[in-house]
């Protein structure tokens, strides 16, 4: 389980997180929604230790995040970045098997390559993609390679940062289905941040609405449409009028 307790983070005068409280039960898929610049990515990066919160605590399975062996802590996570964040200089298979080629999870090269090709197949990519460079792939293919990399070491917790941004509706649907299938198949805890409502309905068990640095509403995805929360209602219906200012 991931628990964020009264987490604050500011960048200069910009107070992004202002007492974020959130719990993600083990094995569930939590989707955090909210407008651009509301701190969704910051919240996710705080859990991973990529950004240090100013105050508040974050726990993973009851233990403070970042305490103890950092490599072992990070080995429990997989992450799909918004732009893929594939390493330009490495062929696709080495991107996917990056964690398996070095560090605590190191495997023989042939075994790592075989796992990479299997993960590529799992996300719907053919083995001939393995030796291509990321720059030779389309945006959708890069996202799928990023997804393959996120699951390559079979992590317990997977983070998805805007998984469908920049993709056409069909490719978005493919990625959403893949994420749902993989999370269920692996029994992983998932935390996704997005403002794509189609993704929310496809991926989420639970939804949390982030606005002004705090969670305005959280609950099961089935209750989202009847929440009665004015912030959530405005967001999911895409209305310009409401408590969320259109110009921020």
């Amino acid at each position: 389980m991931i628990k964020m307790d009264n987490v604050h983070k500011a960048f200069g005068d910009n107070r992004v997180l202002q007492g974020l409280n959130l719990e993600i039960p083990k094995g569930s898929s939590m989707v955090i929604i909210g407008g651009s610049g509301t701190g969704k990515s910051v919240a996710l990066k705080c859990v991973l230790g990529l950004i240090t919160p100013d105050s508040g605590e974050i726990f993973v399975d009851g233990k403070p995040a970042g305490a103890g062996d950092r490599d072992a802590f990070l080995a429990r996570f997989g992450m799909l970045f918004q732009g893929g964040a594939l390493f330009d200089s490495l062929p696709v298979w080495q991107n996917v098997a990056f964690r398996l080629l070095r560090g605590q999870l190191k495997r023989p090269v042939e075994e790592a390559r075989a796992i990479a090709i299997e993960k590529l197949r799992r996300v719907g990519l053919k083995p001939d993609v393995a030796d291509r460079l990321p720059a030779e792939l389309s945006g959708g293919m890069q996202k799928r390679v990023g997804l393959a990399r996120a699951i390559a070491a079979e992590p317990e917790i997977i983070f998805f940062d805007e998984p469908t941004t920049g993709l056409d509706p069909i490719m978005s649907g493919v990625i959403n289905d893949l994420i749902r299938e993989i999370v269920v198949e692996m029994g992983a805890t998932a935390m996704t941040i997005t403002h794509d409502m189609t993704s929310v309905r496809a991926i989420a068990d639970n939804v949390a609405m982030l606005h002004d640095g705090v969670i305005k509403w959280t609950g099961p995805v089935a209750e989202m449409d009847d929440s009665g929360d004015p912030y959530l209602d405005q967001f999911i219906h895409g209305r310009a009028e409401g408590p969320i200012e259109a110009v921020r």
């Binding site: 990066k45 990529l50 996570f77 992450m79 970045f81 964040a85 594939l86 390493f87 070095r102």
Partner: peptide
Amino acid sequence: TMKVTEQIDALVTLST
């Protein structure tokens, strides 16, 4: 460029 495209963050999440 690696920093701007989050490749540095990706390295960290991959325990590197």
